[in-house]
Design a protein around this nucleic acid. Sequence first.
DNA 1: GTAAACAGTGGAGTACTGTCCAAGGTCAAG
DNA 2: CTTGACCTTGGACAGTACTCCACTGTTTAC
Lengths: 118, 118
Amino acid sequence: MRIGELAAQAGLTRDTIRFYEKIGLVTGRRLANGYRDFPPEAVPWLQYVRTAQTLGFSLAEIAQTGEELRNAPDTAEALSALFEEKIKVIDARMAQLATLRAELDARVGTGCPLRAAG
Amino acid sequence: MRIGELAAQAGLTRDTIRFYEKIGLVTGRRLANGYRDFPPEAVPWLQYVRTAQTLGFSLAEIAQTGEELRNAPDTAEALSALFEEKIKVIDARMAQLATLRAELDARVGTGCPLRAAG
DNA sequence: GTAAACAGTGGAGTACTGTCCAAGGTCAAG
DNA sequence: CTTGACCTTGGACAGTACTCCACTGTTTAC
């Protein structure tokens, strides 16, 4: 598919996709006329990128994940290891969120401020 | 306390704290010699800033939270409302993390890639 | 009283993540 | 065969969050 359609389906602008291509976050072939041509899998991939990004991963990290996925040996082991690693990161982040949540929760109703020091 | 001690205790650099002061993220008085003087509460506050930041909040958002905390009427209600609002944001983010986690978890062991489209 | 460690200011520079042109090439419809 | 929608490149600009520097003043330790 061409860049406009990918942009529409992924909810990004064409400029953003060109930027992502420049930093290696997506890759595509070129048509004879020079237009970019992306595979349909680019849509869910870019959606994953969005998600990972809001979870605190930098584009460089996400690009590296994509790279590892492409270069992984075809045994499922490499992929599983990669996923498990990401799951660990997610668990750590969730624990951190839970801590902050508990901290806030404990103060609800007590009027105890978060010491908003000046 | 002076800026160096605050920096050491909060795990930041002096430059970062000066930057934070410039954007209103921390405020302090000045000593007679012009040195900044921060209250001890600045330490936990900056630690909170760090946490909130890793959770995806911009410094501007965090600064506004601090502002709201300072300006809240002294009833506990305003603080509780603010905390509850933050808790909602945290819950939404945790749900998002849980979704991504489940997605990854389902692929561990299956060898099914995340469609790392190029 | 001097050297080291700490503090101040202003401003330049950096990395990341886009966003917006301008000038131009391609293609489908009427 | 022109119009409009789409595509190309290169480069300038923007916002966020620092980071570093030069130059200067202050405090502390010896």
